[in-house]
Design a protein around this nucleic acid. Structure first.
Lengths: 129, 129
DNA sequence: CCTTTACTCTACCCTTAGGGGAAGGTGTAT
DNA sequence: ATACACCTTCCCCTAAGGGTAGAGTAAAGG
């Protein structure tokens, strides 16, 4: 099938599917006369796989890793779990940063009257020495 | 003072300070004969202000807004608070997304034995139709 | 057979907020 | 005069594609 159908079936944009071909993540045959990429069902399955992994916030490089484990029937579940736990720990670290940030900002906001006067503790904090 | 000193005083890199001059965020005079940018104490204060705002996760555009409010002695604290509350709400939304993500990943990981066998519920989920 | 329409191709620039480095000019101390 | 630190502009790089231009291709309708 052509790229448009592959994109539709995998719920990705044509641009994204083409990008994945360009970086070698999925390697469709290319019709010599027309130049059109030709996708098989198996490649569509890989596209779906990547799409899901991306939604789980895995980077393209991590998707590449996961995909090669997916294709390797001699993989160990240990390898997959390791990548997943690393991702979870990245998320935890980002969560902590964001929580701290939220607390600080919300503290600042709660101290600001939010009225028509120019006096503002938020700006004071930002311009504090 | 030259850019190196301004960078040191504001705890930013020279590259960053030059970038802020290029996008017109801080506008130092430029010595005609040498071409060197010349920073005043006031401009260093603005750089510090921007540096702090960036740490609070405000984008460059938001920093530009905050900076113009900082300079406008007729501003209202309402305006500043509005920007801050919007930022908090962005953060909240990101926090919720990340929490959901973490739950899903951690559910997947907990179902994975993480042993030497190829069978893996994480890959199963990613390749589920 | 011809035209329209839909689809596809490559190639280029754009996004954030700078980082890295080259090539070359400036300032100052020795 | 030379060494060294500092400064300049210019260009390419990041992640993951989005947008658009210009051109070729496929399939359907007349």
């Amino acid at each position: 099938m052509n790229i448009g159908k592959a994109a539709k079936l995998s719920n990705l944009t044509v641009k994204t599917v083409r990008y994945y071909a360009n970086i070698g993540l999925v390697k469709p045959e290319q019709n010599i006369s027309s130049g059109y990429r030709e996708y098989t069902d198996e490649e569509v399955a890989k596209l779906k796989f990547i799409g899901k992994a991306r939604k789980f916030d895995f980077s393209i490089d991590e998707c590449k890793e996961l995909l090669s484990l997916y294709e390797d029937k001699n993989r160990t579940s240990k390898e997959v779990k390791k990548i997943t736990l690393e991702k979870i720990s990245q998320i935890d670290s980002k969560l902590n940063d964001l929580k701290d940030l939220r607390n600080e900002l919300s503290f600042l906001a709660s101290n600001c009257h939010g009225d028509d006067k120019p006096n503002c503790p938020i700006l004071d904090e930002l311009s504090k020495n």
